[in-house]
């Protein structure tokens, strides 16, 4: 199944690099504009579970990398049956059914913008909201990019590599005086 999927992908989409480091992982590097179509493609293939969206700050290359991790609900069941009923004869295909696909794309760090994946996977909503808050990436078409976790505003979104939390703690929390000391 993995090779079939790989061939399919390569024939449909240009400009993508695919690697399969393990039997059950597929890593795809895609261009920005292809992401939603590829996600759609996987959804139609039965990979109907968006496990998460993650973001990595590659500060040296001046880019953010967005990672969409997609798995599957529906092909699990037969595979699971195979594994219990016939332990020795688990085929590669059956084992791959539970695999994950990592779809990666890079966006510029200076002007971090992307489009929302909500039309394809509805549960991407909180993930995008979180990435917006912690990395400052703007998702076009997202209905509510309001703060999710943070109470204070930070000049640099805190999960970026150039945000130094130790420095921030010194500058902010340590400046607040103890009540006892202030009296004297």
């Amino acid at each position: 199944m993995i090779s079939a999927l790989k061939n399919d992908l390569e024939s449909i989409f240009k400009d993508i690099q695919i690697s399969a480091p393990e039997d059950d992982r597929l890593i795809i590097n895609a261009q920005k504009d292809a992401v939603l179509t590829i996600l759609k493609f996987f959804k139609d293939k039965g990979y109907d579970h968006l496990a998460m969206i993650s973001c990595t700050d590659w500060i040296e290359e001046d880019e953010f990398e967005l990672i969409y991790i997609v798995g599957s609900y529906s092909v699990y069941a037969p595979a699971a049956e195979d594994i219990t009923s016939d332990k020795s004869g688990v085929s590669k295909e059956a084992a791959f059914n539970g695999g994950n696909i990592l779809l990666k794309t890079r966006i510029s760090r200076k002007d971090p913008r992307f489009i929302t994946a909500i039309p394809v996977f509805e549960n991407s909503e909180p993930y995008e909201r979180e990435i917006h808050e912690l990395f400052g990436v703007d998702f076009k078409g997202h209905p509510r990019l309001t703060p999710l976790f943070l109470e204070r505003e930070y000049k640099i979104p805190p999960f970026r590599k150039d945000f130094d939390t130790r420095r921030y703690v010194k500058d902010f929390f340590d400046q607040i005086p103890f009540v006892e000391n202030k009296e004297k």
Partner: peptide
């Protein structure tokens, strides 16, 4: 998910 009838468990699937 399992309460809606999907047999899905990572312990089996992966």
């Amino acid at each position: 998910l399992r309460a809606t009838g999907v047999k899905h468990d990572i312990r089996k699937a992966e």
